[in-house]
């Protein structure tokens, strides 16, 4: 949490996860090299490196972008989401090797500034088939660099969660630029239905996952709750599992109602760290624990336990029989509200 910063917060699981990332990347590079040399022994080492790392970065970008909606659709993917940042930085390294080698190979060996050369060596900006696709890759790499270099919690804290989130949503622009970089670049020179098909399937899968999730979430947002004297009827006690929560949309915001040790408490569903859904987490050691990165809040007041300083809005609850009602007006962040006993 925000008390102090270490360069990388490694724990046993993260180390295992990082080993899987590194091994996966190495296996891919070796396999790519072997297959390429088997089928095209005349490929130069520079071309091999450029293609291997370029394709690796694209595959990793697809995996990264699929993790979010997959974990919204199925909780089993949450551990991957928890470690997504390391995967993102690894993907940037692969993309940087691809971009760096390409810039050196095609633009650094002349007497022109390589960056200037990327923009001016091909001026057919009006043509789709001969478009200077390297420019698109350059901008995508710039976005990925910005994201990788600000991925640490230090920047999240200092830029504020809102600005940080907006900055990191540029990944979608980077994704569009990467797709066009490939379609207007490599595919123009080496037309292959197979590779075009693979990338198209990747895009269709990603777009479908994101849209299915978006419409599912919109449906939840649209659910209206019955009102009774300014209180909204949400559910019964039995609808909520012990040490877990149920999420409702109250005044356009998601609220998580937790049930624990004979108490009911409601807090704003959005974690202060990276906007994780607190209601999908559970109560561990008396604290609501965010399923994304493990940030914790006390259910009674929405505050992170000392010495941490994060806090979320809390909501009043009341019980009529076994039916739970919520006051839709949020209290100030970190306001202590007496839990509703049952």
């Amino acid at each position: 949490m925000s008390l102090g910063y270490r360069l990388v917060l490694w724990n046993k699981h993260k180390k295992t996860y990082d080993k899987i990332i590194v091994s996966g990347m190495l296996i891919y590079i070796v396999l790519f090299a072997v297959i390429t040399l088997l089928f095209n022994s005349e490929t130069s080492i520079e071309t091999l490196i450029i293609r291997a790392f370029g394709s690796l970065a694209i595959i990793m970008l697809h995996i990264i972008l699929a993790i979010g909606p997959l974990s919204r659709l199925n909780n089993h993917y949450l551990p991957i989401l928890y470690n997504r940042r390391h995967l993102g930085v690894s993907m940037f390294i692969a993309a940087f090797i691809h971009g760096g080698f390409s810039s050196f190979q095609f633009h650094a060996l002349g007497d022109t500034n390589p960056i200037y050369s990327i923009f001016t060596s091909n001026m057919e900006y009006h043509s789709l088939t001969n478009f200077p696709f390297q420019v698109l890759g350059f901008f995508a790499l710039l976005i990925l660099f910005t994201m990788a270099s600000t991925s640490h919690d230090f920047f999240l804290e200092n830029l504020t969660a809102k600005v940080w989130k907006r900055l990191h949503m540029l990944v979608y622009l980077a994704y569009a630029l990467v797709i066009l970089h490939v379609f207007l670049g490599a595919f123009q020179q080496e037309t292959s239905l197979f590779t075009i098909g693979i990338l198209s399937i990747g895009f269709i899968t990603l777009a479908s996952l994101h849209l299915i999730t978006a419409f599912k979430e919109a449906k939840i947002d649209a659910l209206s709750l019955a009102e009774k004297e300014g209180w909204l009827e949400v559910c019964t006690i039995d609808d909520i599992e012990e040490d877990r929560a149920k999420i409702f949309t109250v005044a356009n915001e998601r609220v998580a109602i937790f049930k624990y040790e004979g108490n009911l408490s409601a807090i704003h569903n959005v974690c202060k760290h990276q906007g994780g859904p607190l209601g999908e987490g559970k109560i561990i050691d008396g604290c609501i624990t965010c399923p994304w990165h493990g940030y914790q809040y006390l259910p009674g007041n929405g505050q992170s336990p000392p010495p941490f300083t994060e806090k979320v809005a809390t909501y009043e609850l009341k019980l009529l029989g076994t039916t739970i009602y919520i006051n839709p007006k949020a209290s100030e962040e970190g306001t202590a509200i007496k839990p509703c006993k049952y």
């Binding site: 989130k165 949503m169 979608y172 994704y175 569009a176 797709i179 066009l180 895009f203 777009a207 994101h210 849209l211 978006a214 419409f215 979430e217 919109a218 947002d221 949309t249 356009n252 915001e253 998601r254 959005v270 906007g275």
Partner: peptide, 19 residues
């Protein structure tokens, strides 16, 4: 937040049409 959810939805609708 609800705003971020909407932004994500519109971004993917735009990408699904444009790409």
């Amino acid at each position: 937040t609800s705003g971020q959810r909407k932004t994500h939805k519109y971004i993917w609708l735009t990408l699904t049409i444009c790409i």
